[in-house]
Design a protein around this nucleic acid. Structure first.
Length: 639
RNA sequence: GGUCCGGUAGCUCAGCUGGAUAGAGCAUCAGCCUUCUAAGCUGAGGGUCAUUGGUUCGAAUCCAAUCCGGAUCACCA
């Protein structure tokens, strides 16, 4: 049990004995004592006054005396200021903590709890390379998996690859038209980038053709549209004209929307789009030459992405492909129809009514019997259970899908999926540029491979300028640049609360100073350097030796912070929030850094003091390495 | 329009199950390398915690309303 929990229990017990009053740990707070007061932890007394009918001073006095008298090995003294009871934890406790854990690399982690959880993350498209947003997703997914493991869960990491559909056909068509048989080998391009380039080429061509249609349209020529499209265009134009007359901000907004719809209709009528649609039908029919092209180009993308995954240290226990899962879920719909969970409308489409939960009616099967996005997700959710008997499922998906995920969970609950209550959406905000959203159509995305390379370059320049590792081999240097560069990037993306959207400015490079990965890595390297240079005693009597010593303020601050690590791990798990770890580890590193500047370890006042500081440093290093590990960030022995 | 999320220092963010004088980093300014790694340390300046009202002994934190920003409400995925 940890300090805060233990103290709550002791206070509850004492209050019950003193006043016969029953309290729970939610009835009062125990906080860390503010530095300007004496003590380590503070019981806030105000909320206890009514039930005990005491004044703060009297209650604090009684409680403090009792706690210290009956737990002398735990509390050494107390004082009361206004309604705050400040308790000082005895040195014995801190010494025991240090002596027991200083060399335990698993400090704070829990043994297996028998629960199995699947974390789905990454979920790339096979028509373009990974960008900065994907990196946030990957780092979050990986880190949350590690955090769950540290809390005793068995974790299965999975990914669903979006490898089919109309957008995939776009790059295929573009390759056929403009590719001249180009391959990753012939062009020297990474496979995912090559395919991504064709996707961009497609969009350019589409834009060109749509503009041509617009020009024809302006010249009064509309025969290239189908009757339906013509009607649509006329209707939209009429609406547009109506809003033009209004001339207020609301109408301007509507006009923008209508313009987008108009353009979408034109895009749908282009020759190249017709080719794409026909290719999608061929793909679904399993036409051999289309399947062959699809297999080949997807293979290029997988090769490229695997390189990136390897680079960032991401991996998966199970990869699902939409080409295999897109038909899943239909049997569940049939089953749900039999049980009246779903209902059929006159046009024979199938729906579920979620209005009781404040949502809408949701379509699960089209009138032609084909399934929609949500249907395959339901199917996949069930398949995950059938395959792995998971107790929990976590989806790392952007916050634009909040509604979708809410619907998915609700439907899973309605159809009685076993673990439906334990479906969690780890929703994260977009990574934006100062100019706004990244748009692949406009080429304003920050490419994952580029930014990683940029970070490593930055790490190299800074390392060379400092010149501390001149004896490293080329290989060791490369490894170091990778550790530092990637560490800076991961920390940058993980230190922020996942649900908040964040701004990345490509003009300003990601910092290596202050609240950053490299600062923490640097402190780790400094500790390792000291530990290499000094002999660490393994004296069985060390507890008794320490007991005679007083902790200096910075030493106390360090050990107090280290004690909280297990609680932080638990909290990060409950909140599915790696930033809690990031903030905590930074504070540990910062405290150590002050301590390091203030007090000498090698030349401590006495040999005993030196051993105490070495053990304190060792425990700090272990916690830093462990915590950074939970973020997926490595720490170097030297830098 | 409905629903959801956000608004804290010039910038990027912590703090939010109510507690003592609201914290970091960057940037700015002033100091600190002949002893363990200066990617560091010490200090200074910088705040109407979007606004208003409410609950409370006590509100950045809870409630309500308003303003601003974003997402979403497809027979797209």
């Amino acid at each position: 049990m940890y300090l805060a929990n233990m103290m709550h229990a002791l206070v509850i017990e004492a209050l019950s004995e003193l006043y016969g009053a029953a309290f729970t740990d939610k009835d009062f707070q125990i906080n860390q004592t503010k530095p300007e007061f004496e003590g380590d932890y503070t019981v806030v007394l105000f909320s206890l006054l009514k039930k005990t009918s005491q004044s703060p001073q009297v209650l604090g006095e009684a409680l403090g005396n009792k706690l210290v008298a009956e737990n002398a090995s735990f509390f050494s003294s107390f004082n009361i200021i206004k309604g705050f009871l400040n308790l000082t934890i005895s040195n014995t406790y801190w010494v025991n903590l240090l002596a027991t854990n200083y060399n335990d690399p698993c400090f704070g982690k829990q043994p297996l709890n028998g629960k199995r959880v699947m974390v789905e993350y990454s979920s790339p498209n096979t028509n373009k390379p990974l960008h900065l947003g994907h990196l946030r997703n990957n780092f979050l997914g990986w880190s949350v998996s590690e955090i769950l493991k540290a809390n005793g869960y068995e974790v299965l990491k999975s990914s669903i690859v979006n490898d089919r559909g109309i957008h995939i056909c776009k790059s295929m068509i573009a390759w056929q038209k403009f590719g001249n048989g180009e391959t990753p080998e012939s062009s020297g391009k990474k496979g995912d980038h090559l395919v991504g380039d064709f996707y961009v080429m497609f969009e350019d061509e589409l834009k060109k053709q749509a503009t041509e249609l617009l020009e024809k349209e302006n010249a009064g020529e509309i025969s290239h549209y189908s009757i339906e499209q013509q009607e649509q265009l006329i209707m939209l134009q009429q609406q547009r004209n109506k809003f033009l007359e209004e001339d207020d901000s609301k109408s301007k907004e509507r006009i923008t929307k209508i313009d987008a719809e108009l353009m979408e209709t034109r895009r749908g009528a282009t020759d190249i789009m017709l080719e794409v649609k026909s290719m999608l039908l061929d793909w679904e029919a399993g036409k051999p030459d289309v399947i062959e092209l699809w297999t080949m180009m997807n293979g290029w993308v997988y090769d490229g992405m695997n390189t990136t995954y390897y680079n960032i240290g991401s991996d998966f226990d199970k990869t699902y492909y939409e080409s295999n899962t897109y038909l899943l879920g239909k049997d569940i719909v049939q089953d749900g129809l039999d049980k009246n969970t779903f209902y059929r409308k006159p046009d024979s489409s199938v729906w579920i009514d979620l209005t009781a939960e404040g949502l809408d009616e949701k379509l699960v099967l089209r009138k032609d019997g084909t399934s929609v996005y949500i249907t395959q997700d339901i199917g996949l959710a069930k398949q995950k259970y059938d395959e792995y008997k998971i107790d929990q499922s976590i989806y790392v998906i952007g916050d634009e899908q909040n509604y979708h995920m809410k619907v998915l969970k609700l439907i899973c609950q309605r159809i009685g999926l076993k673990y439906a209550d334990d479906i969690h959406h780890l929703s994260y905000g977009m990574v934006e540029l100062p100019s706004g959203k990244m748009k692949s159509r406009e080429g304003t995305v920050v490419d994952a491979d580029d930014i990683i390379e940029e970070m490593e370059k930055e790490a190299r320049e800074k390392t060379e300028a400092l010149g501390k590792v001149k004896d490293f081999s080329a290989e060791e240097l490369q490894q170091l640049y990778h550790t530092i560069g990637l560490g800076a990037l991961k920390f940058f993306l993980l230190r922020v609360d996942p649900k908040k959207r964040m701004v990345f400015n490509p003009e300003e490079s990601i910092d290596f100073h202050g609240f950053t990965g490299p600062f923490i890595q640097y402190n780790y390297a400094r500790i390792r350097s000291i530990l290499r240079k000094n002999e660490i005693g393994d004296d069985a009597e060390k507890k008794n030796i320490y007991l005679a010593l007083d902790f200096l303020p910075l030493e106390k601050e360090l050990i107090t912070s280290l004690e909280k690590y297990p609680v932080i791990i638990k909290q990060a798990c409950e909140e599915l929030n790696p930033s809690a770890i990031a903030v905590y580890i930074f504070n540990i590193a910062k405290t150590f850094s002050s301590f390091f500047a203030e007090h000498s370890i090698s030349n401590a006042e006495t040999p005993e003091k030196k051993q105490l500081r070495l053990h304190l440093s060792m425990m700090t290093a272990n916690v830093i390495k462990s915590g950074m590990g939970l973020l997926g960030i490595q720490v170097p022995e030297r830098m």
